[in-house]
């Protein structure tokens, strides 16, 4: 099982790195969305610090949602997804590998970029650390939940908009607790409750989401 998991992760990472463009586009999108806010809201330091955590989190939500379209589509088009289903290894394990690789390519760069953007918006000290931790715990949940939606909308006309409609409501709790953790620290409270809940989401969704996503894929390829 571990062999299969490692194999899928390595395969998807290699495919993603050979076509570097996609990874960078996603990251650029994240940076641009965050940079739009100071231009739109105005450069006052206090206002920006006030909304910083929400802005970074919403931008992370949107860019990880946009990246979902690529999670299964290329494998679906060249037929390797059907081979995945016929494989001797359980499908949820293979799907988990794909999600993991997808997060390493689309989620982790966001987490690494977030401190820079946080500093730009005037977050500092402990708030910045909490922002990174919350993103580190939260973005994998986004990839996991999103995989279910990506599986359900696979190969549909206008799948992109539909995917947003299906997935964004499910993302809301992650957004609330992710941005809430940073807000808690800024107002002088402990962030540990919010971070623990994010951790619980991560554990719960990594247990259930690969299974639900495989069921979705089986339905879509039926």
């Amino acid at each position: 099982m571990w062999v299969a998991l490692r194999w899928v992760v390595r395969r998807d990472l290699m495919l993603a790195l050979r076509g570097r463009g996609e990874v960078l586009t996603n990251l650029m999108f994240f940076i641009i969305v965050v940079s739009l806010f100071p231009l739109g809201v105005g450069p006052e330091r206090e206002t920006l610090t006030e909304i910083a955590s929400g802005v970074v989190w919403v931008a992370a939500l949107l860019s990880s949602m946009l990246a979902l379209g690529r999670l299964f589509s290329s494998d679906y088009e060249d037929g390797s997804l059907e081979q995945f289903m016929l494989a001797a290894h359980p499908l949820p394990v293979l799907v988990l590998g794909k999600i993991l690789a997808h997060w390493l390519v689309s989620g982790l760069p966001l987490v690494l970029m977030a401190p820079v953007l946080g500093l730009q918006l005037g977050l500092g000290g402990e708030a910045l650390w909490v922002l990174i931790t919350s993103l580190l715990l939260g973005t994998p949940v986004l990839s996991l939940l999103g995989a279910v939606g990506a599986g359900l909308t696979l190969g549909l006309r206008g799948g992109g908009v539909l995917l947003a409609l299906l997935v964004l409501p499910l993302y809301i709790p992650v957004l609330v607790f992710g941005a809430g953790a940073v807000e808690a620290v800024r107002s002088g409270l402990e962030a540990s409750a919010h971070l623990s809940l994010l951790g619980a989401f991560l554990v719960g969704s990594s247990l259930l989401a690969p299974w639900a996503a495989s069921a979705a894929l089986r339905i879509s390829l039926d």
Partner: peptide, 13 residues
Amino acid sequence: RASRASGLLALVG
């Protein structure tokens, strides 16, 4: 497919 996909979505929600 419509019935099975939407059913799974309902259960997730």
